[in-house]
């Protein structure tokens, strides 16, 4: 599955990048996130409950960030395990471009899911993922006191 989108956020780039690295903000914004621990500047551990179609599962996963190009762009890789429900792994490249006082965030994500989640939810995975992404950015913008301009 591939997701690609562009989101305009009414906040300066430094602020956006800082927020994206703030576990408290991320925890509030990631739909279903129950726990988010930052082990280091590049390593995160999360517990997220997800529902895709008829399958609901609690995923525990790890995310590794590569901030070498930050704040212009950064990438992340992660994987999560949802027990009998299945597993997910993937990565994303995120770009942050300044546009006056606003920031244009572009992302390109690739994910693969396996197990029951993939079997039952394959039709719903892409649409659910889009919905979750939209929800994330809506919450994220709200945290930054800025409305997302999609």
């Amino acid at each position: 599955m591939e997701l690609k989108d562009e989101v305009r956020i009414a906040a300066p780039r430094e602020q956006v990048y800082a927020a994206l690295n703030d576990p408290e903000i991320l925890k509030k914004c990631i739909p279903g996130c129950e726990e988010l621990i930052k082990h280091s500047d590049t390593e995160l551990e999360a517990k997220v409950t997800l529902k895709i179609g008829p399958v609901k599962a609690r995923f525990s996963g790890n995310v590794v960030l590569d901030p070498t190009q930050a704040p212009d762009s950064f990438s992340l890789q992660g994987e999560g395990n949802g027990g009998v429900a299945g597993f997910a792994k993937g990565g994303a490249d995120v770009g942050l471009a300044e546009d006056g006082d606003e920031t244009v965030l572009t992302y390109q994500a690739k994910a693969a899911i396996g197990g029951k989640l993939a079997q039952l939810g394959s039709r719903l995975v892409t649409s659910t993922s889009r919905k979750l992404a939209a929800k994330f950015f809506a919450s994220f913008a709200k945290e930054l006191n800025a409305d997302p301009v999609v």
Binding site: A112, I113, G114, G115, A118, Q119, S122
Partner: peptide, 14 residues
């Protein structure tokens, strides 16, 4: 099956 060996046709939807 997909590349990861996930069974893609295990319900009568598929």
């Amino acid at each position: 099956y997909d590349d990861m060996g996930t069974h893609k046709t295990s319900t009568l939807m598929d």
